[in-house]
Amino acid sequence: MLVDDHEVVRQGLRRVLENEGGFKVVGEAKNGLEAVKQALSLLPDVIVMDLHMPQMDGIQATREIKKKLPDVAVLALTMYADDLLPEGVDAGIGGFMLKDGDSHQIAQAIQQIHQGINPVSPALNKKLLTEYYRLHKQNSLALTNRQKEILKLVCEGFAITAICHQLCISLSTQKREMREIYNKLGVNSRAHACSIAIKAGIIKIVHD
């Protein structure tokens, strides 16, 4: 789903994605309020979100959408380097790209965010994100060992029932611990929690 207050931008993005192939644009919105309504109706996999729009900006729209659709991936498009990066990550935005960037890179970023990767335009100031993740690492010190065990299994792709079986805990305990993890890390989705945990070094995933 494409969200931008300029129709020419939405049309341009649609053409880029159609030319790339492998994408289906299920809807468009010209402001944050429309974005929330459309997202709840269309249930998109990925939302490409402008940050500065009338009535409701992209940050607030993302917050509202993630409350109802925590697993939807949101990719922010911005005109400015360092534009609202920490606020955007707090809201649940999973990636940031510049509007004037290469069209192929934007299409690639959409694919990446759908796969759980957090794309960031090379032109954006990654120091801000690094500092943000450092602060989250400090907050992670409050995680209990059990919560870290659960989070590690979540990030490794284990299903809820498998986590309960492996750790010998009940479903209600697992859900309670996940709520605590979300609160302590300041996130609202599994993907966001894993992104923070891995990038901040809270947990380490070993690939065979």
Rank of each mutant, 00 (worst) to 15 (best):
K67A: 07
N139M: 02
Q112E: 15
N125I: 05
L84N: 09
A197E: 10
G58S: 07
P70L: 02
D57V: 04
Y132P: 02
S172E: 12
L151C: 07
T62A: 15
D82T: 04
L98V: 11
L151A: 06
R190V: 14
L135R: 11
D100K: 05
I196D: 04
G116T: 05
G94P: 11
N183E: 11
Y132T: 07
A61Y: 10
K148W: 00
L69T: 08
L85M: 15
F158D: 04
G116N: 05
Y182K: 14
R134D: 07
F158E: 08
G116D: 03
T161R: 05
L153D: 06
I163C: 10
G157L: 07
G157P: 07
K148H: 01
R176C: 01
C155A: 06
A191Q: 14
Y80C: 02
I163E: 12
E180H: 04
T130D: 00
R146S: 11
A73Q: 12
F96I: 10
A123W: 11
M178F: 14
K152A: 12
K152D: 00
K68L: 10
F96Q: 08
I198P: 01
L85Q: 13
K127C: 00
K137Y: 13
T78W: 01
H104Y: 07
Y133V: 08
Y182F: 15
A193M: 05
K175H: 03
K66G: 04
A81C: 05
I65G: 08
E149H: 00
L171A: 13
L85R: 10
I65K: 04
S170A: 12
L143I: 12
A107Q: 03
I169G: 00
N118M: 14
G186Q: 05
A142S: 14
K184E: 00
S140N: 09
L185A: 08
L129T: 03
Y182S: 13
L69M: 15
I106N: 07
Q111A: 07
M97A: 06
K175E: 09
Y80K: 13
N188D: 08
L143Y: 12
H104G: 03
I106T: 05
